[in-house]
Design a protein around this nucleic acid. Structure first.
Lengths: 118, 118
DNA sequence: TCAACATCTCAAAAGGTATTGAGATATGAT
DNA sequence: ATCATATCTCAATACCTTTTGAGATGTTGA
């Protein structure tokens, strides 16, 4: 059954993505693939203290963009690509009515101009 | 020349989108198409005072997601579909490495499960 | 058991964001 | 000129977010 995330889920996800540390974490985890990475390693790669990392990873997890699974004394975080895809689908199709100009930008080879550039 | 929005632009746009009133405004304006709508009409449709509307429309405009053009005594706002598309492209391709599972969700017929649902 | 490790929680401080209502500004009509 | 209209600005208030450092919790290995 096709069911988009509801608005409040989408808002939580967008809010989670709108912070530079968290965007970097997500980039890192997507690049890692299904294997994910433990909190400490993410912190070392990106550069933040354990409490700061815990805070940001918690925001991402509560927003549903990453999953956290305990593995002995570590916590492995993984990007939830299905959730991320659902957010994209919500934005493109539900919020933007699948506007062709917007949809066109989503393919890897898309030639979309940056915002506010001539 | 293909050039994605830079990170700070993307963050401003994501932050602008992560508020329910503004997401509604954008939905409304995308549905309106290139004709756009004056501030007052958006406020009536969505339900907010002029000062609140001015604040939120300003956030969207500063983030580059909408354009504002003065037309006699009204200000016409329009969704900037190129900028919105560029944001989508940035998220999908630059942040998420064009992960196939994420890209798959962007077509209108995509069957993506919502975040956090079984 | 004890020490080291990985992560989380908590409270304080600083800064950012949203809402409200009053009022300023500018345009168009009488 | 005067008035109504459309929008923006401003200051006050309330609330939310981020960072920091200290320390709590739970896990593994000696």
């Amino acid at each position: 059954m096709i069911q988009p995330p509801d608005e409040s889920q989408a808002l939580a996800a967008l809010s989670a993505l709108s912070e530079s540390t968290r965007l970097r974490i997500l980039r890192f985890l997507v690049a890692r693939g299904p294997q994910g990475a433990p909190a400490g390693e993410i912190g070392e790669a990106i550069g933040f203290s354990s409490s700061r990392g815990s805070f940001h990873l918690g925001v991402l997890a509560r927003a549903g963009l990453v999953t956290a699974t305990k593995s002995s004394r570590q916590v492995i975080y993984r990007a939830d690509t299905v959730a991320i895809g659902a957010l994209m689908g919500y934005l493109i199709n539900d919020c933007c009515g699948a506007d062709p100009q917007i949809v066109a930008c989503c393919s890897p080879a898309a030639a979309c101009r940056p915002q506010g550039e001539s």
